[in-house]
Nucleic acid binder design. Structure first.
Lengths: 128, 128
DNA sequence: CATGAAATCAGTAATAATTCCTATTTTTAA
DNA sequence: TTAAAAATAGGAATTATTACTGATTTCATG
């Protein structure tokens, strides 16, 4: 199953790179459709999954039941607003040392961790 | 909407307390059914949601697309095996200080965090 | 104890995100 | 140029979960 070029995959990835929020498959679909009107939702899902499996993009499961996608694969964290549901980047120093803490008293191999922070975002705080 | 006693809710909670893994609604349903044959799946979902909203139990969204539930509401972390999908407790010192780290350079109010560790569990390591 | 309003239930239909299926089109190595 | 492999569009199917409805249970009050 050697990878072949696909215009659709390119457009999906290009779009994702322009976004700092972390859109869902549906949002990617709605936006990509403007430029590529008869792309199908299934194609969007298939390619997002493919890109995530290759490690080209990140799939974020922040707990709202909908997958979000991020073209930035560098180490950084995410914040989820409990009010508006928005998912934003959180630039902060690495907390990778919590892996050591976790390994101290655990049988089995800990390979990684997923952390997301939640609360009320700046915009929603002002609004309240 | 004052809470009224319900036998079903009691049985669901009692069952959940006996388990150290963190069963899904479906697993709770299958087990509770043995003792309470005509309980409905909807009732299981409704009561798990109710208990979680009250803070009596914890809802775990570990990223496998299925909600898991935990009757232990004390501070502790969870490990998810990438091989068998099992969710287990991870007793470790608190990492709550990562909240301070996250707050350093963030506009908006950070109230909490969710962290899951993943890797290969003891059982699956031996099997390989 | 009797009663009735509110809560809960069982059973089933509906929803929503995602995956699967198939006939057709596109890519690309030879 | 060509043909096998990969990808597509469009729609059907799946899966976890929630919503709906008429019947049943709970429980404060008389």
């Amino acid at each position: 199953m050697a990878l072949k070029y696909s215009r659709q995959r390119q457009v999906i990835y290009d779009f994702l790179m322009t976004r700092k929020d972390h859109p869902t498959a549906e949002t990617v679909y709605q936006n990509v459709r403007q430029e590529y009107p008869n792309i199908s939702l299934g194609t969007v899902y298939r390619n997002l999954t493919l890109l995530a499996d290759m490690g080209t993009i990140q799939r974020l499961r922040v707990g709202d039941g909908i997958d979000h996608f991020d073209a930035d694969t560098s180490e950084h964290y995410h914040f989820v607003c409990s009010e508006c549901g928005g998912v934003t980047d959180l630039k902060m120093e690495s907390i990778a040392k919590i892996l050591e803490t976790a390994r101290k008293d655990f049988d089995g191999e800990i390979q990684g961790h997923v952390t997301y922070f939640y609360g009320i975002c700046d915009k929603c705080t002002r609004r309240a």
